[in-house]
Write a protein that binds this DNA or RNA. Structure first.
Lengths: 143, 143
DNA sequence: TGCTATAGACACCGAAAGGTAAGAAATGGA
DNA sequence: TCCATTTCTTACCTTTCGGTGTCTATAGCA
């Protein structure tokens, strides 16, 4: 993979799955930054994005149809759209091989890997507390 | 509701803000559970939910209009809807005081606190990598 | 009497998300 | 010759999201 000179930070900073935990506590209150962060999270916390992120994290490099097959329920339109967006946000790379049935490979960038690691906490939370949420819902709906 | 027998852990497990970090790696591959988890994350990763979660985490207990004032841009409809949903999911409590201009207080449950803690990682990620994402976008859009 | 304030419920309506389906482009194989 | 394959794009249409505006109940107050 050649591209993506992520200019500001070195690759060495990312590989550690817990890298996002050290230093820099959430002590921040600039409303402009906060707005940008909100917007970014809103885009990135998208259902399909999270699923594709997980899949690529686990499987490495995959081609278009492969992802479509493994992310159950996604339409081709959403797949294209989501991948394009991830590429634009610098989360994934898109490599086109100029062969005649087209072949396009997708893989995570270091940035994508770090996001995947950050989401890990939410993922674990959901797994661990799924039952609690369902129980709460049942209790709520019973009234 | 058709609870898949996921019950089996006590409330006492939740209060620690870092509880979601210890043990239990994401080693899990039951497609049914995975679907439920996806759905849960999709619901919980909602924009307004995240903002209210943050606000209540920071401020403690707040009443309806207070939240409306501090979550900039939310409509009354969305506020009601989101709070109702959070209550249903067991993330927040709703306390009605039978006084004459009505007064209703909202606060996070331990479950809500733990979710807030889990999202913390994503917030930090977004803060730290905001510039990288914007740079990636600029590069992408320049083509 | 009539006005205000609080926490909603409810209906209407435009905008946006997302699904379906068709087509395009290029080439090897039946 | 014609079809299948792969990765999209585009058009069309339905469903959902979310904003606005109206209505309620009740007590205090002018």
């Amino acid at each position: 993979m050649e591209n993506q000179g992520q200019r500001g930070f070195s690759k060495a900073e990312i590989p550690d799955p817990k890298a996002w935990l050290d230093g820099t506590p959430p002590a921040e209150s600039d409303p402009r930054v906060e707005r940008l962060v909100n917007e970014l999270i809103g885009r990135v916390a998208d259902k399909w994005t999270m699923l594709i992120l997980e899949l690529l994290e686990e499987k490495g490099t995959l081609r278009f149809t492969e992802i479509g097959r493994q992310v159950e329920g996604i339409s081709q339109k959403m797949l294209t759209q989501t991948l394009r967006q991830m590429e634009r946000d610098g989360l994934a790379t898109r490599t086109v091989h100029p062969v005649v049935p087209p072949r396009v490979d997708y893989a995570l960038t270091p940035l994508g890997n770090s996001l995947s690691a950050a989401f890990c906490g939410v993922w674990i939370w959901a797994e661990r507390h799924l039952a609690a949420v369902e129980e709460a819902r049942a209790r709520f709906d019973a009234l």
